[in-house]
Design a protein around this nucleic acid. Structure first.
Length: 490
RNA sequence: CGGGGCAUGGCGCAGUCCGGCUAGCGCACCUGCUUUGGGAGCAGGGGGUCGCAGGUUCGAAUCCUGCUGCCCCGACCA
């Protein structure tokens, strides 16, 4: 298994592809733009799901499931929503195939055309709000706090494994509230949840803020987001949370009777993160030796590699390996004993390193004699010999250290790549270097659009609680009250 | 949809310009022996409608025509 990996410096995007494919996270499928998520990659996603799902439940949400197909007419009910998604929808027009009359193959049966075409959901606001109409009558039915784990389809022109695929997996929360304040608070709360997840589980520092009008979700009044900085200096939107106002309630006629017995439209939010987080995870921590997974998300936290010369030694070190595995598992540590007799230790070292396993324990005949093991850290690549006594504590401690170290490294990287620009020339120079750029902007979509056209940089976010600071727009020179964050983005 | 490139065992490629006899190499795979503390060595072995359809020719992976698929770069996007 020769793992030749492009380096980040030589070819960043090839480096990313190599890791995803060679670490067995995912591969391209026979369907253009759609990926197969392989068991190892899916195991990481499952861990993300589990952590997020618990956070959603802890904040009062329940899971439900809505249909994959959405009647076309639903889509046109919210004007800006259609406009936003129309260009990337897969449409089901027929419901039957038949044998080709020329004898070869199968064709669409033209006589089986759907009366109303179905859209494969690119997001579920419309079908969900159509449903909520029947669920909500009174203020007593509110708030309605629902999440769904689902797949969605957006017909992208260019795709990249995890970062942008035609079909992707995600969760979408859809909530209904009696007041505007409550809905805004919900959107902000979920942004907080995403922030905590990114930082505590993924060890990925994020900036929080709101989107400019240009970048806002189609149909939202306000879009909140978390943005992370990748190692090539490009920003990646890692999660979004939307305050939808009464837009969908009005479009789908969802009203409730308030305590004063008056009909009111409900207030809405929606929020989501997707398998794109897998891409973010790869690009935040991995290095030129392969994938690096933070311990909290690693499907295998510790791999034990036995070293031996003959069958007798093989059995002896494997027995010790099994014993250690049991101790660690009792402490809720995820362990794999790689007792394959078909690969050499050196091969296994490289393989598990490439797959990002946080800790590797090697046990050989020498270790048996000295009651020791060799432990190697994936994040620092350091190796050290430890006594078997107290090993569980040591491992637990090291996993914790790795989790923190990965976060700190990523945070340092972001700080080192966050700049301030006060003039257009400065901005032009900095944007070429990559990273986040804090700069003044006059607040108009036109200016943002021009900056995007001239530099490919967009406003990633307007800081939520950013310091107010008088200044002049770097592009137009018009007055500005606050710096916003620019970057080139995925 | 524009601009480039590619299509040859599971994967990565050479061969194509200048047609030639049995289509080759690396990795992976199978068998055996020796190995095993950072990607093992040797020996033997299996596996190919050279993307598809026509054409030229005694003879086509190679030349001609027409298709099809994929990748990369741009416009769109989480």
């Amino acid at each position: 298994m020769a793992k030749e990996l492009n380096t980040r410096e030589d070819n960043y995007s090839q480096w990313y592809n190599d890791i995803v494919i060679k670490a067995d996270l995912a591969e391209n499928s026979s369907v253009r733009g759609c990926m197969v998520i392989k068991p190892y990659g899916y195991a990481i996603w499952e861990r993300m799901q589990a952590a997020l799902d618990k956070m959603f439940k802890d904040t009062g949400h329940e899971n439900a499931y809505f249909p994959l197909f959405i009647p076309k007419s639903f889509f046109s009910k919210e004007a800006s929503h259609v406009e936003g998604f129309a260009k990337e929808c897969a449409v089901v027009t027929h419901y039957r195939l038949k044998n080709d009359e020329d004898g070869k193959g199968i064709v669409v049966d033209e006589s089986a055309r759907l009366e109303e075409e179905l859209i494969v959901r690119p997001t579920s606001e419309t079908i969900i709000w159509d449903t909520y109409r029947n669920w909500i009558q009174s203020y007593r039915d509110l708030p309605l706090l629902i999440n769904q784990w689902a797949n969605v389809v957006r017909w992208e022109m260019r795709t990249r494994l995890f970062l942008r695929t035609t079909e992707f997996l995600w969760q979408e929360g859809h909530t209904a509230h009696a007041t505007k304040e409550e809905a805004v608070a919900e959107a902000e709360q979920m942004l907080r949840v995403y922030t905590d997840f990114a930082e505590e589980w993924m060890a990925m520092p994020v900036l929080r803020g709101v989107k400019s009008i240009n970048e806002r979700f189609a149909g939202a009044v306000e879009t909140y987001c978390i943005e992370a900085l990748m190692q090539d200096g490009k920003a990646l939107q890692a999660g979004t949370s939307h305050f939808l106002g009464q837009n969908f309630a009005k479009a789908f006629d969802v009203q409730f009777l308030n305590k004063e017995n008056k009909l009111e439209y409900v207030w809405a939010t929606s929020w989501g993160v997707s398998t794109r987080l897998m891409g973010a995870l790869v690009m935040t921590h991995s290095d030129d030796n392969g994938l690096v997974i933070p311990p909290k998300l690693a499907p295998i936290q510790v791999v034990i590699v036995p070293i031996y010369r003959n069958e007798e030694q093989y059995h002896a070190v494997c027995d010790k390996g099994r014993e250690i595995k049991q101790w660690l598992e009792k402490a809720d540590i995820r362990v794999k004993l790689d007792d394959r007799d078909t690969q050499k230790p050196g091969f296994k070292f490289n393989e598990w390193e490439f797959k990002g396993v946080p800790l590797r324990i090697a046990i050989g005949p020498r270790d048996l004699e000295q009651a020791s093991v060799e432990i190697a850290r994936r994040d620092t690549l350091e190796k050290e010999t430890y006594k078997v006594e107290g090993l569980v504590e040591k491992v637990r401690h090291l996993l914790d250290r790795i989790q923190k170290n990965l976060y700190q490294k990523a945070l340092d990287f972001r700080e080192q790549n966050t700049f301030q620009a006060d003039t257009w020339d400065e901005f032009l120079e900095l944007i070429e270097k990559g990273g986040f750029i804090r700069a003044h902007w006059d607040g108009t979509p036109e200016t943002e659009q021009r900056i995007k056209e001239e530099t490919k940089a967009t406003i990633r976010l307007i800081p939520l609680k950013g310091k107010m600071e008088e200044g002049k727009c770097i592009y137009s020179g018009n007055p500005s009250k606050q710096r916003v964050v620019f970057a080139r983005a995925y």
